[in-house]
């Protein structure tokens, strides 16, 4: 990996209550990627991004953002970051335009009407620019939060559960916004507990559970595990051995001789199932039923967090 844009080393956080929210997390995030952080509620996802963004203090470890320490060089580090919080925290009496301009100034940048116009148009908020926040729908409020987070042209965008409690149409819309952000070179880190969201959006997936980062992998690699399928042939008349003509498939025979199982990855030829079935017929196997199973990211995920 080239110089990571965010580098987290041995990050730990213990809250005053004694709760260990993060326990030695190390993570490098590449420039321009979309990283999904998956994990059950209370896993430490929000704590992790809150520490990187500066709203929670760490107990131990280091965070570098664009090479700048997030504590000793917080101005340079934070200038690179935009944060979309999980809750709809907005000043409801303000107009869309004012609140987005306000955010930009908080980051020490001059107001830039042209840029804010582009931003509001991209997020389909232009027509609502003079509307007070309290008159907006939930979906629009979420987009206002994104506009605020992008108001100072950050290189990294953190989205904390961007689609929690959001309807299907809006989720799709949110995904397309995130994709168009990636196209402009923004690095996106999103937390989610929807596996399909990670599957849909992410280049890499990290799984957090009980304050530990238990896996970070390219989605493609994960998908290979995900792509494992299991085909079971249920036989009316049990066999003692796998027929010689079927040996090449690497089948597994159940102890009672009634089920033949074939496991194949996404790399297998497309007609493999048909060939297997034809060969089974030629071998005079009395197949009375077939069943298929697919391991999902969900299975992998549940397997990981259950450990």
């Amino acid at each position: 990996m080239m110089q990571p844009i965010v580098s987290v080393q041995n990050l730990s956080k213990t809250y005053a209550s004694g709760l260990v929210a993060l326990d030695g997390v190390s993570l490098d995030i590449a420039r321009g990627e979309i990283l999904a952080l998956l994990g059950p509620n209370g896993a430490g996802k929000t704590t992790l991004i809150s520490i990187i963004c500066g709203i929670v203090t760490k107990s131990a470890g280091t965070v570098l953002v664009g090479g700048h320490d997030s504590v000793t060089d917080f101005r340079a580090a934070r200038a690179l970051i935009g944060l979309v919080p999980q809750e709809l925290h907005l000043s409801i009496f303000e107009t869309v335009w004012d609140t987005v301009s306000f955010s930009r100034q908080l980051y020490g940048r001059k107001t830039d009407a042209a840029y804010i116009e582009t931003l509001l148009r991209m997020l389909s908020l232009w027509d609502k620019r003079n509307a007070k926040i309290m008159t907006l729908s939930g979906g629009m409020k979420r987009r206002v939060l994104i506009a605020k987070a992008l108001s100072h042209q950050p290189q990294i965008l953190f989205l904390d559960e961007p689609t929690a409690g959001v309807d299907v149409g809006l989720r799709k819309e949110m995904w397309s916004v995130i994709r168009s952000l990636k196209a402009t070179g923004v690095t996106v880190i999103l937390t989610t507990h929807y596996i399909d969201e990670a599957e849909e959006m992410a280049d890499r997936v990290g799984v957090i559970d009980k304050g530990r980062l238990i896996l970070v992998e390219e989605k493609a690699t994960l998908m290979q595990k995900l792509g494992q399928k299991k085909l079971s042939l249920h036989l009316a008349r049990p066999v003692n051995d796998i027929p010689a003509s079927l040996k090449a498939y690497g089948l597994h025979l159940s102890p009672d001789g009634s089920v033949l199982t074939y496991v194949h990855g996404s790399g297998a030829p497309r007609d493999i199932i048909l060939r297997l079935l034809k060969d089974a017929e030629s071998a005079k196997l009395d197949v009375h039923d077939i069943s298929t199973e697919q391991s999902s990211l969900e299975d992998i995920f549940m397997g990981l967090v259950a450990k």
């Binding site: 500066g54 709203i55 101005r75 340079a76 200038a79 919080p85 925290h89 000043s91 908080l106 020490g108």
Partner: peptide, 14 residues
């Protein structure tokens, strides 16, 4: 109270 404090804490403000 309203939660908008997050923005002040996350911004490069001393």
């Amino acid at each position: 109270f309203s939660g908008t404090i997050y923005e002040f804490l996350a911004a490069p403000i001393s």
